[in-house]
Amino acid sequence: MAGELPTTDEATQDSGAAPGRRAFVTACGALAVTTLLVELGTDLEAEEQAEGPERYDPREHYYGMGIDIDKCIGCGRCVEACKAENDVPRDAHSFRTWVERYVIHADGETAVDSPSGGIEGFPEPTGEAGVLRTFFVPKLCNHCANPPCVQVCPVGATFTTEDGVVLVDEEYCIGCRYCIQACPYGARFLHPTRRTAQKCTFCYHRVVRGLVPACVEVCPTGARIFGEVHRRSSPLERFRRFNEIQVLKPHLNTDPKVFYANLDGQVR
């Protein structure tokens, strides 16, 4: 049982020491955790896993996320997991993902709130008279295929990887915050001490090892679905086949890769 675990340890240390990307990726492919996952089978594609110890090739993947509004219970576990996994500052205005609550009143007024990003859940609203509909909406970086943030970065410190993930180079970012202005979704923030832009990475460090993003891992109701776009065997593609899908602010032509099912028109 525990016999396999030291292997994992070694592999992780290896990967930490390997300098080049290629060497690293090889090491990471050899990671025992991945092998472990192959044997067990995970949410990720079976044939992806079958490659197992071979190196991770970003060109063979293209990631996206699905969110089912009808399943979100607003528990905020995703927000907590994101902060824990990615060492996100624990203040009330630095979030890589957060949950919003919409309360649409019968008179057409819509109230939205997100106390502390929803990390501690939501207090029961007072005065619920006249509520027409109410629901939760998890938000995160949309990893747009046509990302305005990447377009405006003056130095090339934010970029789209070959597998479709928008990342920030923390050692190169000059902290001009133009990307924060350009993001229509409020998905970026300036790290209060590092003074560089930060955002959701789709937990890229997990994804290349065959794990799902932390928020997806901990979502108790399966409201978040991670997978590959345009691959029929992907859980995300299945989600997109069986649901009517919307994206946020489609008129801006950012081409988001976070797909919402059962999204209300009031959500912006």
């Binding site: 990471c28 970029f159 180079d169 190169y172 460090h205 799902v212």
Partner: peptide, 28 residues
């Protein structure tokens, strides 16, 4: 690989994993 530092991907990938994933728990 594009207009960015390819090495940045390495440092992002090198980030430590916090959540092991349920598959890891189920083995033991």
């Amino acid at each position: 690989r594009g207009h960015y530092r390819a090495a940045a991907v390495d440092s992002i990938v090198a980030q430590e994993i916090g959540y092991a994933g349920h598959a890891a728990c189920e083995t033991c």
